[in-house]
């Protein structure tokens, strides 16, 4: 890794709290290795809750919260956690944050909580969260791990929002409840609301991400 040092972060430089890796980490999570579109992780929840933009945004917010919180704690404890039980410890930490978010939704956004149903609780088993804790937070300092968690949460949220936006527009003709394609000429396509619509849209999103990424890699060569 020594000959492959990432460029220093613009805001705080190589001596900053993230060791100059902040910006690269951010770009990695949101774009270069976007958890949903490039790593193809967290597909189950993404397919299930992306039928409306609002649901996608709340689910994205949940993932950002859980990723940031669990990455921070796992990173803080990384030198004290016994190697043998590190995964159990990670799951306990992740589950705590997920349940906190779930209780918050149930208390203050009851309707949203009902719409998302079991999928908020299922974030505990989301490969993205566990993957970041295991692959990143265990080896990196707390602040950088938080950036990584936020970046991956954002990457997931952004991809989910794109899917949710298209499915809601084509499936109901509305965006966040406001009519967009509401004229006589447009018949909402129910298929987009149902599971097949999620597969089609996700496929297109993955394809588009990879086309752009392919161009980027080609330019570098």
């Amino acid at each position: 890794m020594a000959n492959n040092q990432p460029p220093a972060c613009l805001s705080c430089g190589a001596k900053g709290p993230c060791g100059g890796k902040g910006l690269l980490t951010l770009k990695d999570g949101v774009w270069t290795s976007n958890p949903l579109a490039i790593q193809i992780l967290g597909i189950c929840s993404a397919l299930a809750v992306s039928n409306r933009l609002e649901n996608s945004l709340v689910m994205g917010a949940a993932l950002i919260f859980v990723c940031v919180g669990s990455n921070l704690l796992v990173s803080l404890l990384r030198n004290r956690t016994p190697h043998r039980i590190r995964m159990i410890a990670e799951v306990a930490i992740i589950a705590t944050f997920v349940i906190l978010f779930d209780q918050f939704l149930k208390a203050f956004y009851w309707d949203m909580s009902k719409q998302l149903g079991p999928y908020v609780g299922l974030i505990i088993t989301n490969c993205i969260v566990m993957g970041r804790a295991e692959a990143f937070a265990l080896q990196n300092p707390p602040l950088l791990s938080m950036v990584d968690g936020a970046a991956n949460g954002l990457g997931y949220a952004a991809a989910l929002a794109i899917i949710g936006l298209f499915r809601e527009i084509l499936g109901t003709g509305e965006v966040m409840g406001y009519p967009v394609l509401a004229g006589e000429w447009y018949t909402p396509n129910q298929l987009m609301i149902l599971a097949p619509g999620a597969f089609f849209t996700l496929g297109v999103v993955i394809a588009v991400f990879n086309i752009f990424k392919g161009q980027e890699t080609a330019e570098k060569k």
């Binding site: 410890a89 930490i93 705590t96």
Partner: peptide, 22 residues
């Protein structure tokens, strides 16, 4: 012993947090 202690402490802290929030 350390592993057991660590698990007990982590478990208790998580449980306390969730109890408070619940």
């Amino acid at each position: 012993l350390y592993v057991l202690g660590y698990a007990a402490v982590l478990g208790t802290v998580c449980a306390l947090l969730l109890t408070a929030s619940a």
